[in-house]
């Protein structure tokens, strides 16, 4: 069963949004879960993508992705009406949602996409939601409006100051932690380095911090173990034990190294795709 792209648009520099038919996933998915897709049949790579939202009524899921390699670029080249051959999910353990009190949700770049359903669920559970969104520049900031709807307080910053406050997300996060009372829980999703530094900010304040990891995966059901990370010194599988973990216990340095395992091959594949794309005049 393939999955039709119902609507699709570019929402930022190298960032794309699409609504895709996947009725069973739309029905089953809970905040924090993800999917694995491959575009064609044989030979196509399987990549994990977060689910930004679902519409169980129309049987669609919302995907947001950043163009970083061959598969994400090929996905960006698909048009409305095109089909994605394989989507499996929802995968991963759903986010533990409860009424913590005051929560701070920190999103970096594309991380805003998986963070949105979590912030929404936290708000619905009766939490006071402070959202901090960051991006490299204005063109890469996504979902600000939708975060505004579910947040009691919204802080937006860009690395280069091209929009709102010029800062890295760690700065406002520190200020929020210094408030009295401090937040009861933090949820951080974004680039690995950003999550690492956010955890360093919340650690001295003793604010429990949940991170969502997006490691390399093949099957996404615990079968291959390629996604494993060290949490509290022990190996954990992101696809089944996660994707969310206590950020204060994650070995981010090792995770970053593992994520670079195929860098050369990924670049090679992307370059070849770009050349091929030129030739066929896309």
């Amino acid at each position: 069963m393939s999955h039709k792209i119902v609507s699709k648009r570019q929402v930022g520099e190298d960032v794309f949004w699409a609504q895709v038919e996947a009725p069973l996933i739309a029905k089953a998915r809970k905040p924090g879960q993800f999917i694995i897709l491959s575009i064609d049949g044989d030979g196509s790579e399987r990549i994990p993508l977060t689910i930004a939202g679902v519409n169980p009524g129309s049987g669609t899921i919302e995907l947001i992705w950043q163009r970083v390699g061959k598969t994400t670029a090929a996905l960006a080249d698909l048009k409305e009406g095109d089909e994605i051959a394989n989507i499996a999910g929802p995968l991963g353990t759903p986010t533990h949602i409860e009424r913590f009190g005051t929560v701070v949700c920190v999103g970096g770049g594309i991380g805003n996409a998986p963070l949105l359903p979590i912030a929404t669920a936290l708000k619905q559970a009766g939490n006071r939601v402070i959202s901090i969104l960051g991006a490299r520049d204005r063109s890469r900031l996504i979902l600000e409006d939708r975060f505004a709807e579910v947040s009691d307080e919204l802080i937006v910053c860009t690395d280069d100051g091209s929009y709102r406050r010029k800062a890295l997300v760690t700065e406002p996060l520190k200020e929020v932690c210094q408030r009295s009372p401090k937040p009861d829980h933090a949820f951080v999703i974004g680039p690995t380095l950003m999550m690492k530094f956010c955890c360093e900010v919340t650690r001295p304040f003793g604010v429990p911090t949940q991170v969502s990891l997006n490691t390399i995966m093949v099957d996404g059901t615990g079968m291959c173990g390629g996604c494993r990370v060290e949490v509290d010194g022990a190996p954990k599988f992101v696809c089944v034990d996660g994707p969310e973990f206590d950020g204060h216990k994650v070995n981010f340095d090792l995770m970053i190294k593992r994520m670079n395992a195929y860098k050369k091959q990924e670049q090679q594949a992307y370059e070849e795709y770009k050349q091929h794309r030129c030739k066929i005049g896309l």
Binding site: D42, G43, S44, E45, R46, V218, Y262, Q265, Q268, A269
Partner: peptide, 14 residues
């Protein structure tokens, strides 16, 4: 399954 032995010539999985 992912035919990584064909990476760069028909398969994307490294």
């Amino acid at each position: 399954l992912m035919k990584a032995y064909q990476f760069g010539s028909g398969a994307d999985t490294p």
